[in-house]
């Protein structure tokens, strides 16, 4: 939570004079299920990255190609869309073959 500024300290006009300030805002606390990444099953198709509505899929460029890195749980809201669009994670595949597995948040301590 940003400290609440007094009226003399705020930019006028309701303007937010800096970009991207929402990146400070943690949306990961909303999550009830979490996507777990299994790199061994991933084909780096970038579908999860493309569709994550919260840009919580982290990728990096290796040898000029994008590679899936994992999830940013500070933002991930647990919608499960990444797993749904992942070609390696459909319901018919056994869990150990999936690249993304959705698990209840209660299974995690952090």
């Amino acid at each position: 939570m940003a400290d609440l500024k007094g009226w003399k300290e705020l930019a006028i006009g309701g303007v937010i004079d800096k970009p991207s300030t929402a990146k400070e805002y943690q949306t990961g606390t909303w999550r009830v299920i979490r996507p777990v990444y299994k790199p061994e099953n991933c084909i780096n198709c970038m579908f999860c990255w493309l569709y994550c509505p919260d840009q919580a899929v982290e990728i990096e460029v290796v040898d000029g190609k994008p590679k899936m890195k994992g999830f940013n749980y500070y933002y991930c809201k647990g919608c499960g869309l990444c797993a749904n669009v992942c070609p390696k994670s459909n319901d018919k595949l056994p869990e150990e073959k999936r690249a993304i597995v959705m698990k209840p948040e209660t299974e995690f301590q952090d």
Partner: peptide
């Protein structure tokens, strides 16, 4: 220097912005 005009200004800041107008 991208700025945001016209945000949703709730009970935690709206009043301060009105005070600025009064000033």
């Amino acid at each position: 220097n991208p700025v945001t005009y016209g945000p949703l200004d709730l009970y935690d800041y709206y009043f301060e912005h009105k005070r600025q107008q009064i000033e």
